[in-house]
């Protein structure tokens, strides 16, 4: 407790403020590589929020998949395409309007759910303390029971396999063309 505020709350507000600033810079920045860097900053702040919620595996997965994987591939794409983002691009008004409408709708829905839950700040979790450990995650991911995620897990692996095969097909050189 510092000045009557729980310490975890202070950490949350600092991280949330940083996250919002980084997210805004991501959208506003004219340099596309700088946007990508601030996107990573946003993801890392999200990971810290997961840690505050005691979901450590989620946090690590967030950093591994998004910061380490997805955004690095985006940066690859940015580096491979020359002169991208060097001159600022124009955003037409209708697009801006639609984007604003989507953002407002999202905010309204989030607000509706959050304001409807007055005990949100004081509520305790129903899950046991072991539920967020690595072993419990792994077992639930692979168990076919009521709380298990075996079928979605296998479906996603199938999807990834499809993506892998598709990327190999695209990247493969045409043998006929190579002979000529």
């Amino acid at each position: 407790m510092i000045l009557g505020i729980p310490f975890s709350d202070i950490v949350f507000y600092v991280v949330a403020a940083f996250m919002i600033v980084a997210a805004v810079v991501t959208v506003v920045s004219k340099n596309i590589l700088q946007s990508a860097i601030f996107l990573i900053a946003t993801f890392i702040a999200t990971a810290i929020v997961y840690i505050l919620l005691q979901a450590e595996f989620m946090a690590v997965a967030q950093v591994m998949v998004y910061a380490g994987g997805v955004v690095v591939f985006m940066i690859f794409a940015i580096l491979l395409t020359s002169h991208l983002g060097e001159e600022s691009f124009k955003v037409h008004l209708p697009r801006k309007f639609i984007a604003g409408a989507i953002a407002a709708a999202f905010l309204a829905i989030m607000g509706k759910f959050l304001i409807g839950q007055p005990e949100l700040a004081t509520a305790t979790s129903n899950a046991s303390a072991e539920a967020s450990t690595f072993g419990a995650y792994a077992l639930r991911l692979l168990s076919p029971g009521a709380n298990g995620f075996l079928i979605p897990f296998e479906l996603i692996s199938l999807l990834l396999l499809m993506a892998l095969v598709a990327s190999v097909t695209i990247a493969k050189k045409d043998e006929d063309k190579e002979e000529k």
């Binding site: 690590v60 997965a61 950093v63 591994m64 910061a67």
Partner: peptide, 25 residues
Amino acid sequence: DLDIAIPFIIAVNGFGILSTMLAGW
């Protein structure tokens, strides 16, 4: 002593890749 130390190590190694590419660009 995190129970997810190995995923953690794999995850933070991504920063190395990032900084190398950033420095290059």
